[in-house]
């Protein structure tokens, strides 16, 4: 049985403003998160992502603007909406003197609609899903940051949710943990849950999300399906060759803009040349031209626009890029 597709967005804001004193942390954003998507909320640290999440979930009040979550106006419908929302906000917060199980039991008890008869069962399930069963009885004081992060995810998964809001979910996790979170998010999305993931890591968003919104200095500078954003950027070619200067010369003759390739080294110990401005040129024609000019082409790649460039141009700031 599949839930009937609902057209109203899972999260929608209009002109949302949150000020602290005279500083606007969130400055009039219009967010639209379609249902059933994995929405990446991307932005550098301090761009207002976490503040937006706090306001969306009623932890902080907005100075102006309208919010609706799961089709209901917030914060008026907070009590009826929050049971359907699982959240991890600004890192985990737990009682160090209680065990993992004890913490989840406590937080589940706080929800008056959570059936107490199945509490223990649901807690064990959630711990199992995030791979914490072995440490369930340990005091949280003894947990590593990664384990606490997993426990935070388990808390978000205590009950079936329509919407998951995950603020920097992979913070503090090792690569293995990061992969697990990624696959967890995908499986949840496959089950129909809308997932709203905030991150300052471009690669993470690129790998997990279907939709993306970009925050910069309190403003939402772009949002939409990931593919659309990608298409809006420029494609480029990457040439691996020891004859860097000659290749650059050839590329510029063809109308491309040569430049240094990001990242270092190529599989054959040669330097790469990046050519942007691939405007209507056939890739095979470029290779032919290079070869004709005696450039030893050891590798050739055509890449769609790097999201990074796109976001750098949108935000005017650099991202932490992780391969």
């Amino acid at each position: 049985m599949k839930e009937p597709v609902r057209s109203d967005p899972a999260i929608e804001t209009h002109g949302l403003v949150k000020r602290f004193g005279h500083r606007s942390a969130v400055d009039g954003i219009d967010l639209a998160v379609p249902r059933g998507t994995v929405f990446g909320f991307l932005g550098p640290n301090g761009s207002g992502k976490t503040t937006t999440i706090r306001v969306l979930l009623g932890l902080a009040s907005a100075n102006s603007g309208d919010i609706s979550v799961l089709g209901k106006a917030m914060p008026q419908a907070l009590a009826s909406v929050l049971p359907d929302v699982g959240a991890l906000v600004e890192g985990p917060g737990f009682y160090p003197f209680l065990s993992g199980t004890g913490n989840l039991m406590r937080l589940d008890a706080a929800d008056r609609h959570a059936p107490s008869s199945t509490r223990r069962h649901r807690v064990d399930d959630a711990l199992e899903r995030v791979g914490l069963s072995h440490a369930a009885g340990k005091k949280v004081r003894a947990y590593s940051l990664g384990m606490k992060q997993r426990l935070g995810l388990a808390n978000a998964l205590l009950r079936p949710r329509e919407l998951l809001v995950l603020d920097e979910p992979t913070n503090g996790l090792d690569p293995q943990g990061t992969r697990e979170v990624r696959s967890l998010v995908r499986s949840l999305a496959a089950g129909g849950t809308t997932v709203f993931v905030s991150s300052h890591l471009l690669a993470e968003v690129e790998q997990m999300c279907t939709h993306v919104g970009v925050m910069s200095a309190g403003r939402l500078v772009a949002q939409g399906p990931l593919d659309e954003l990608r298409a809006a950027g420029q494609a480029h070619v990457l040439v691996h060759t020891p004859d860097v200067e000659r290749a650059a010369h050839v590329l510029s003759r063809l109308g491309l803009v040569p430049g240094d390739a990001p990242g270092t080294g190529s599989p054959w110990g040669t330097t790469a040349v990046l050519g942007t401005g691939l405007d209507g040129l056939e890739p095979e024609a470029i290779v032919a031209a290079l070869v004709a000019d005696g450039v030893r082409v050891r590798g050739f790649t055509v890449e769609n626009a790097s999201l990074e460039e796109r976001f750098v141009s949108l935000t005017g700031e650099g991202f932490d890029v992780v391969g």
Binding site: A114, P115, P160, L188, G191
Partner: peptide, 29 residues
């Protein structure tokens, strides 16, 4: 999974607990 159960609960499954659980949890903490 989630969509199904969420939908069935929203359809009016009996909501258990009167909210005393939080008090019990507070005292036990």
């Amino acid at each position: 999974m989630s969509a199904e159960t969420a939908a069935s609960r929203n359809a009016g499954a009996p909501r258990q607990g009167k909210g005393w659980a939080l008090l019990g949890s507070e005292l036990s903490v």
